[in-house]
């Protein structure tokens, strides 16, 4: 997994980090947060994708080796949330092929884990 924040309010980021901590521990399913996109299989996108960050998001995605998956976390990443219709918000869907959506503002760590497990099931794991 690699986490990329595209300019949100950090709420989703904090919930995502909570999913790694002792109470939730996503390593039970074999998922670890990695630093380099080359080591990652899943790109976790939080925040409404702004025009400024869009190219960088695509570049990170292109640096990941195939097969690769994208998970959109939070209302902002899915639809723009409260920033919907804003002049500088483009949305993840217009930039990358998204494999799983996790709604919520912010989604609970349980919801994030559920979404990732559903993605794993979709892959036949």
């Amino acid at each position: 997994m690699i986490h990329f924040s595209t300019g949100g309010c950090n709420g989703c980021d904090i919930e995502l980090v909570a999913a790694l901590t002792p109470r939730f521990d996503i390593e039970r399913f074999g998922a670890l947060l990695k630093g380099s996109p080359r080591h990652a299989d899943v790109l976790l996108v939080t925040g409404a994708v702004t025009r400024q960050v869009r190219d960088r998001l695509i570049r990170i995605y292109e640096q990941m080796p195939e097969p690769k998956f994208v998970v959109a976390i939070g209302s902002c990443a899915i639809s723009g949330g409260v920033f919907q219709g804003c002049y500088n918000v483009t949305g993840v869907d217009n930039a990358l092929p998204v494999d799983a959506y996790i709604p919520g503002c912010p989604p609970k760590p349980e919801a994030i884990i559920d979404g990732i497990v559903k993605l794993l099931k979709k892959l036949g794991y």
Binding site: D25, E27, R28, F29, G30, P65, P67
Partner: peptide
């Protein structure tokens, strides 16, 4: 105070092997 690998094999014992196989199958850049 975490649990660690749990669902791959008995108490996650196959997790490193699964990771290895996954990495072997991935694109080599």
């Amino acid at each position: 105070n975490r649990i660690g690998p749990l669902h791959t094999g008995w108490k996650g014992i196959l997790q490193p092997l699964a990771d290895l196989i996954k990495l072997l199958a991935k694109e080599d850049i």
